[in-house]
Design a protein around this nucleic acid. Structure first.
Lengths: 357, 357
DNA sequence: GCTTATCGCGCAATCGTTTGGGTAAATTGC
DNA sequence: GCAATTTACCCAAACGATTGCGCGATAAGC
């Protein structure tokens, strides 16, 4: 509302009272003028006085003390954001959306890493609440979370981001649809033996993407055994281990692998290469999130793009409504599949382009 | 100091006065007891009273209102962190170190993205200062920054992180040494025609890594023309473009490329592959930062590991000293080179292993 | 037994805003 | 020209914590 010029020399920041004293009026009048949104300070002061106040405030680089304001108004204009880890580019990007939207409505954000541990989630939430944030955005909710029930019981305003949970408002990608897109794509390319690197079983992203894929795959007439779905960590290491399992088990290896996360996909690509398989020819790989890396990899990776920035922005909008006591519905942003070299070729195992339809 | 149990039912948080009233003593006594670090509340209260106070505070889940505290003490126990972008895994990892160290000493952190624009840097710093943070950590300082001079003139406590600047305390990797390590490695492997993907010319990381490499390379007797150093963006796209330039220029292509950033290196690897070159055989590539991805890539990438978490942690320690008015020296953390497949093979252009030494 | 220290605690000011409730003076209505 | 509004302000009480000062009462010193 009022910007404080860095060039302003103010050793101790200038206060309302300072301005009032210099103008020979009362600080409450200054406050009212500075808060009157319209040009005319309706009832608060004469337009002449208002003008003088505004001029001096700008000159002195007045910026209200947020602590004092919060103490009085019981609002901090601060939001707490908890994510598994910011070094995960997916969450970091969502946070960029959060920060942008929050800043646009004069909110600041605290962000903390929970490392996906339920103890840390609780601890970090405690810290945020001790800071008296106006609301929380949780980007790391687990499938069986008790924390969110406790928060609700305490009437803490919060929304979920990235991962969803039945009965709570969330801003996420439509992960089920994302999984379906991949199933359609791989089926159309002629693949019939596939495996899924499914991610962490407590994350709705992993669950939904896997479920969307599996359901659609079976609808199309495909076979998908339990052991074709490998749950794993979300990082390259996890993808590597999962791929090892896929490769080393008896029977013919799959001709295509869907990894619910780009980084796991990259790990898997490395393993396949180490075993002499060429990704894109011997085995197709599709990732998820369409991280900036995907398109630029030596073998460009097919991936489902999720609108991460929008998910973050939307989470902020939703949280603001919750804070204002309004009702909100969950938002599910639509994903889009980008087919690249890693899965562009038709499967040469069964070159029939389409069996069903 | 006092933890607030989420299970605590407190609709409105309990205050000092609440506790005092319930105990039949004055709120100032409660305050003093809760602040006495030792078991005995020296002069503040009898140990019996102190015991009662502490017990009730724990029971009621008392947690002091940070706004009220800040208003009185003129300290917010909040730090501002500005980075180019958190979706850059390097800065995100440093921030993890920052958050960890800050939390450990009861500080909270605001973090904002400047997108490496000097206007945004200033704007975000303004926002942080308007929030009355106790100090700033700048992870995005530019070579010719005027902002840091202004901040110093205003006596704002701050330290630099990731990138350094002459005359200001900073917590960084020893980038010059990092560049030298790569020069030694490539020279020893027999390479004589090399190119550098140098990064953004306003970042000390880019400048120092390139300088360290160049100097050492020439010391070893190598040749490095001006056009062998290509300044570029830090991401995959930037690496890709730089590699295109390297490939498409007249004359024999280099047998090795040093990229001051892993992501740029990955972009370059993609370009080389697209031109039919096998990384690790036809052309060696070395990156920087040893991002978790590097070792897991289909062709594992040699890289200089910089202790990103430590850099972040150290920045916090340093800032705390600055806040306390103590003197601090810049910290330069030592890097370590990890040689992997992307550059492990000796150059078959000049298979002589060592010429100098 | 009297002075002096120490203990245990209360009082009240203060930090910078916001905001409900005034009250003179100026303006309007008729 | 006088009552009724409206205008343009000021006053003071919060919000919740911290902290210098003060003051009885007990303990210690000699």
């Amino acid at each position: 509302m009022w910007s404080m010029s860095i060039a302003g020399k103010g050793r101790t920041p200038v206060t309302l009272k300072d301005l009032a004293a210099e103008l020979g009026i009362h600080s409450s009048t200054v406050s009212r003028v500075l808060h009157s949104t319209s040009d005319v300070a309706r009832g608060a002061a004469s337009s002449a006085t208002a003008e003088r106040v505004r001029k001096l405030a700008a000159e002195r680089g007045y910026s209200p003390d947020p602590q004092a304001t919060s103490l009085r108004t019981r609002r901090t204009r601060a939001l707490g954001v908890i994510v598994p880890r910011l070094s995960d580019i997916v969450l970091a990007t969502m946070y960029e959306g959060v920060e942008e939207a929050a800043a646009a409505s004069n909110y600041s954000t605290f962000v903390m890493n929970s490392h996906d541990s339920i103890d840390e989630q609780r601890r970090k939430a405690d810290i945020m609440l001790a800071r008296r944030v106006d609301g929380l955005i949780l980007g790391d909710v687990h499938a069986g979370s008790t924390l969110i029930h406790d928060l609700r019981a305490r009437h803490v305003p919060f929304v979920l981001m990235n991962r969803r949970h039945e009965g709570f408002p969330s801003s996420t990608c439509d992960d089920v649809t994302g999984g379906e897109l991949v199933a359609d794509h791989l089926w159309d390319a002629g693949h019939r033996r596939v495996a899924v690197i499914a991610g962490e079983p407590y994350a709705s992203t992993a669950i939904d993407r896997t479920a969307g894929f599996s359901q659609r795959w079976r609808e199309l007439g495909g076979e998908l055994r339990k052991k074709d779905v490998i749950w794993s960590r979300f990082d390259t290491e996890g993808g590597k281990n999962a791929a090892e399992k896929i490769i080393s088990r008896p029977g013919r290896p799959p001709t295509a692998v869907f990894s619910v996360n780009d980084f796991a996909a990259i790990g898997a690509m490395g393993t396949f290469r180490a075993h002499g398989l060429t990704v894109g020819q011997d085995v197709a790989v599709v990732g998820f999130n369409d991280t900036s890396l995907a398109a630029q990899l030596p073998i460009p990776l097919s991936s489902v793009r999720s609108p991460m920035l929008d998910i973050g922005r939307r989470a902020v909008e939703m949280l603001q409504k919750v804070i204002n006591g309004e009702h909100v519905d969950s938002a599910r942003m639509t994903p889009q599949l980008f087919v690249r070299e890693s899965s562009a070729a038709a499967s040469h195992v069964s070159p029939v382009r389409t069996i069903a339809g």
